[in-house]
Write a protein that binds this DNA or RNA. Structure first.
Lengths: 103, 103
DNA sequence: CCATGATATTGAAATATTTATATATATCGA
DNA sequence: TCGATATATATAAATATTTCAATATCATGG
C-alpha cells in the first residue's frame, strides 16, 4: 500500500537543501548510522542530526536502532508518492504513474 | 521532446515556497497576467514579480507579452520531468514514468 | 551504578529568504 | 512626445534557515 503523501509545500521544503539531498543520496538504498553519514559529509554531527530530524518529520526516512547506533535509510516509497503527488497537482497534463514492483 | 530537467536542488528550491505554489496553482492550466495573479493572491505586485522571476529562472513558467501585459503559465512539462528526475534520483526502487499524451 | 560512545537538543552566529515601499522600465494611446 | 498603466528592479526590514560548539540524553559493557 502506498503511503499518504505529504502536502506539496511540506514535501518540497523538506527536500530543498543541498546537505539534505546529499544525506538522502547516501542512505538511498542502504542503512547508514549517523556516524557513517557524518563521515561521508562535510558537516558536523549536530548538523547531520538536525537534517535527519527534518527528513524524519517529513516521513522521508526510516530509522532502526541497533545498540547505541541509529540507522537511517531513505523511505523511497514516500519519496516516490510525493513526487507523483507534486506532478498530479501541478502537471495534470503530464500524468505520471509509479510502476510498483511486483511483491 | 521532454526538456532537460533541473538539478534536484534547484528544482526543489524553486518549488519550496507557499506563495510560489499558490501562484503555480493559479496559472497551472491557464495564462494569467501579473495583475490577475496579484488579484488572486494576498501579496503585493513586486512580491508576485519576485516569485515569478524565481519560477522563470527555473524554467517553470512560460511567458507571453500582449500589449502592456505579460501573461504567465506554468510549464507543466518541466514540472513533470523535474518530478520524475527527483524520483529517479531518490527512489530508484519505485520507477516512475510520464505518460506523454499522444501528439 | 558508572564510564563510554552514539545521537539528540540547545543556543547563538552567519546567512538566506520573503515581503513591502519606492522607483525604474516598458508599452500603448492620444 | 506625454500620460497612464503594467511589470520589473532596488533597497531594506522582518523572518527563517543553516551551521557549529556546548551540552544533554540514551544505550551498553564492566
Amino acid at each position: 500500500m502506498l503511503s499518504k503523501s505529504l502536502d506539496p509545500v511540506d514535501f518540497t521544503r523538506a527536500l530543498a537543501d543541498e546537505t539534505r539531498q546529499k544525506i538522502m543520496r547516501l542512505c538511498c538504498c542502504q542503512w547508514l548510522s549517523v556516524g557513517e553519514i557524518v563521515e561521508k559529509t562535510n558537516v558536523t554531527q549536530p548538523t547531520v542530526s538536525h537534517h535527519l530530524g527534518i527528513l524524519r518529520q517529513a516521513g522521508l526516512v526510516k530509522t532502526r536502532r541497533s545498540g547505541k547506533m541509529i540507522y537511517y535509510t531513505l523511505n523511497q516509497e514516500v519519496l516516490a508518492s510525493g513526487c507523483c503527488n507534486l506532478a498530479e497537482n501541478f502537471a495534470p497534463e503530464f500524468p505520471i504513474t509509479i510502476n510498483v514492483e511486483n511483491p
